[in-house]
Design a protein around this nucleic acid. Structure first.
Lengths: 203, 203
DNA sequence: GTCTATATTGTGATAGAC
DNA sequence: GTCTATCACAATATAGAC
């Protein structure tokens, strides 16, 4: 029944997450998930009926991780600059721990938006949480005027891109030296907020 | 032989590009490419032998488009700021015209780096073209000190991300209104360089 | 719950007529 | 060069023993 204290159902889910996020829905076979979970292929169907249902379960979990949890940070008492710093630090670390997720999510949503639209809608970020403090600071004259949507996309994009494009970034800039690449990402936790704040703060 | 003045070989390539970039290697069937090209499935093999060879041909072409052509812009007589402006404008427009390419390239490289490493290496960008002018400007005291690699990744990421994450950006910020989304991207051609230059120019 | 064996369908690839 | 017909294999899914 159990293996390393986990129920079979969870062993399968963990294995499926690993394979799906690396190879995508179409590139993944039930056999490979079974091998990864060290169980029989038929068991997958016993627990999750179809590949599609298993995939959807994995996608929902992964999407939760991918969607930045801004609520706690942006509803806090921090200043806008502190929020940006806290967000970049937290989010980049999540992505470092889950480097396959950005491309996986973007690919699956792109090539099958209908199937996943409910999940995307339901778990939607509320960018208003970020927009409002930005508008406030602009009104108070504390930062330079900027479209909050542009700033929002800038913040997220600066965090996600170097991880989504990992193989190219590594090849072009670090001669495929992973250690150097990871150091670069660590520096980015400070660099991204610094870059953003430099851009919007009053001169 | 011909259709709309194009040789069959090119009709196939065009169809393959369309299907591969939207669905990825694994999600694409030879049948679907044949349907898209309005020819018979066997003809694909007549011209390109295998799915793999056809894919590689498509990937090389697409990768050329994806890799920013910085040579012309960055070896020109423009100032650094003008180069950044010209690059963002040109590159964002290429991506608007080819919105599926970023996710396609990142996905295929991520899930099969070995098969594509030659292509990635061979067509590699030379970031040194951008690094040198940045170092020069820092040395001259014209811009704030910054790691050129970080600035390079920022520039590319700010251009690519909103297009790679199109379905999510559209859903979360534009209620899936494509027109509004495209307006947002057009504004970004000016906004990205403005944002970057604001960040690095001396106060 | 977990396994082996098998049914069924889809897909890449080829043979061979025209 | 282009087509139809077909092979061979892989993958999802199920049946049924234990």
């Amino acid at each position: 029944m159990a293996r390393q204290n986990l129920k079979t159902e969870d062993i399968i889910l963990r294995a499926a997450k690993k394979v799906f996020t690396r190879k995508g829905y179409d590139g993944t076979t039930m056999q490979e998930i079974a091998d990864e979970a060290r169980i029989n292929k038929a068991l997958l169907h016993y627990y999750y009926r179809t590949k599609d249902k298993l995939f959807l379960k994995v996608f929902r979990i992964v999407f939760q991780l991918f969607v930045p949890k801004m609520g706690k940070i942006f509803s806090s008492e921090m200043t806008l600059f502190e929020k940006i710093e806290a967000f970049a630090d937290t989010y980049i670390q999540i992505l470092i721990n889950n480097p396959y997720i950005p491309v996986f999510v973007m690919k699956e949503i792109t090539s099958n938006p209908k199937r996943l639209s409910n999940t995307v809608k339901y778990l939607g970020v509320d960018p208003e949480q970020l927009f409002q403090p930005i508008r406030d600071e602009i009104k108070k004259g504390n930062i330079e005027p900027i479209d909050p949507r542009q700033l929002f996309v800038n913040l997220i994009g600066l965090c996600i891109f170097p991880i989504a494009a990992k193989p190219m970034v590594m090849a072009i800039m670090f001669n495929n030296n992973e250690e150097e690449y990871l150091k670069f990402l660590q520096e980015r936790k400070k660099e991204v907020p610094r870059f953003i704040i430099n851009s919007i703060r009053k001169k």
